[in-house]
């Protein structure tokens, strides 16, 4: 069964009309992940774009066809650890326990509880849709924002030109927690994404599974809504977002990307990068190359 068949046959678990922006990467990830997870699923969506878009419910109305919780920004993993423990005790081990959080609720505010849950090996799947900022509140910088990005807290001006620090690479940090399954995925490589959600759900029955998904944001990043998948594809091709997975300690590079494009080609046409200087591009390129070399060594290439 190919991934297209899986997506065609599976039922949509999300309300048909939700208020995510046109061309939202997060909405695509939410819908496809829940299609694969099916109706025997409990999901937690902390504050962020997806919660704000109404899928956690609004004025006594439901946003999803399956049970959904809205934990706080910083305790999603802790909340769902408890929920998972209760489900194990009740003998409902087949229920998928899923958290879908933005990068703020994963890398910044929620990091402590996420790290603790990963270390304890709680049986749940944590999906992070990484749109590189707090998009829900008007694009403030987060720790996964790329260097040189224009955000509302690191604007482009005479003193500061965008974010001055490099991004934090969360998936590798979580992989180092000795989790059951840890992977990165991109909506542009849908076959890979579907396979990783399936693997992650299977691994979440034995331990902690983590999936870091690239989620381009047309509103915050400043590009045309129809270009979202293309931007994600360029990020994978430029090694800005390499695709790899770690299955019980075994690293595997899913896309060796023998002919990578440059960062200068990746940033073309994206509004948040329009004031990037040549030094910034060189700095990002150096960081990206170093990271990819490290991943290649981990995967034994």
């Amino acid at each position: 069964m190919s991934y297209i068949d899986v997506l065609r046959e599976a039922k949509d678990q999300v309300t048909p009309g939700m208020s995510a922006c046109q061309g939202c990467g997060g909405e695509l990830i939410l819908r496809k992940a829940l299609q694969i997870a099916g109706e025997n699923t409990i999901i937690g969506i902390p504050p962020g774009c997806m919660a704000g878009a109404g899928v956690v419910g609004w004025n006594y109305a439901n946003g999803l066809k399956i049970p959904v919780h809205i934990p706080l920004l910083d305790n999603s993993a802790a909340f769902f650890s408890g929920l998972s423990q209760m489900y194990q005790r009740k003998g409902r081990k087949d229920t998928n326990i899923v958290v879908l959080a933005g990068d703020g609720a994963t890398a910044d505010c929620g990091f402590q509880s996420l790290s603790a849950a990963a270390e304890r090996g709680e049986k749940l799947l944590y999906i992070c849709y990484d749109n590189e900022g707090y998009m829900n509140t008007g694009y403030q910088r987060s720790s996964t924002t790329t260097k040189g990005s224009r955000t509302s807290t690191t604007p482009i001006g005479s003193v500061v030109k965008g974010k001055t620090q490099q991004q934090k690479y969360v998936p590798l940090i979580i992989a180092m927690h000795n989790v059951e399954f840890c992977a990165t995925a991109s909506p542009s490589n849908m076959a890979d994404f579907v396979a990783k959600v399936q693997k992650g759900l299977a691994a979440s029955k034995n331990g902690f599974a983590y999936l870091h998904v690239f989620s381009p944001c047309p509103t915050g990043w400043g590009y045309a809504p129809d270009q979202g998948i293309e931007v994600a594809r360029r990020a994978v091709k430029a090694n800005m977002f390499p695709l790899w997975e770690m299955d019980r300690g075994e690293f595997k590079l899913n896309d060796e990307n023998r002919k990578p494009i440059t960062i200068a080609e990746f940033v073309k046409g994206i509004g948040k990068f329009k004031a990037l200087s040549d030094e910034d591009i060189a700095a990002i390129q150096a960081m990206v190359d170093h990271r990819f070399e490290m991943l290649k060594r981990l995967a034994g290439k």
Binding site: G17, G63, K65
Partner: peptide, 18 residues
């Protein structure tokens, strides 16, 4: 096993995104 979601008083939140 029970898969019953308690539906809110107003049913589904559906926005006319068209």
């Amino acid at each position: 096993r029970q898969h019953v979601t308690p539906i809110g008083n107003d049913g589904m939140y559906v926005l006319d995104t068209a």
